[in-house]
Amino acid sequence: MKFLIYIFIILICLNGCTPPETRMGLDDNLIIDTDLTVTDLKATAQKMSRSIAKSKISSKDKPLRIVFMKVENRTFDDTFDSYNLLSQIRKELIASNNFEFIDRKQFPEIINNLSGSDLEKRKEIAKLMNVDYFLTGRAYADSIRKGGGREVYYRLSFRLTDAKTGGIVWCDDDEYKYYGKYEPINR
C-alpha cells in the first residue's frame, strides 16, 4: 500500500512540475536562441523614432508626410516581421505631432516592390500623393560558429529618402549581438 502511495505522490509531483502561465514584464525576455527578440525590435523602433524626431528634417511648421517602404530582410530569420518594426516607428513618430504617415493601402501595389533604383517611379508617386519622404530599412545579420557556439551580429539600419530629389536626408542604425551555445547535455 505504501508503495502505491509513493508512486501516486511522485506522479502528482511530476504533474506539478510544470509551472503555471505567468505574466511577464514587456522588457523581460525568455532568450532561448540567437534570434532578435520583440524587446530588441521595440527598443530599435524607439531609438529610430527619437533619432528622426531630433533630425534636421523635423519641422514644426507643418507635418512631414512619410510613406513606409519595406525593410529588406537579410537576417537568417525567414519569419522576421519587418512591418511590425515599421509600425512601431510610425506610432512613436505620430505621437510627436511632426509627422504624418500615408496609409500604404492607398498606394498601388507597385510601390511595395520598388527597389532603390526605381527613382523615377518613386518621384512620380511622391508627386501624386504629396509625399515628402520614404522610410526604408535593412535588417542584416551575420554569424560565426565555433565549438558548438554561435555568435550572431545584427544591424538594423533605416534611412529617409527625399521623395523629390532621391537624396538620403537621414539614416541611423542599431546593432545587437547574441551568443548561443548548446547546453552540454544536448551535445
Binding site: D77, I144, G147
Partner: peptide, 24 residues
C-alpha cells in the same frame, strides 16, 4: 527575400561540420 533568409540559415546551421578544415 525569405527564401534567401532560409537558405542562409541552412548554410549557417551547417557551419559546425568543419569538413573543409575551417571552423566557420
Amino acid at each position: 527575400e525569405k527564401a534567401l533568409a532560409a537558405f542562409r540559415r541552412g548554410i549557417d546551421a551547417d557551419k559546425d561540420t568543419m569538413s573543409l578544415n575551417k571552423d566557420d
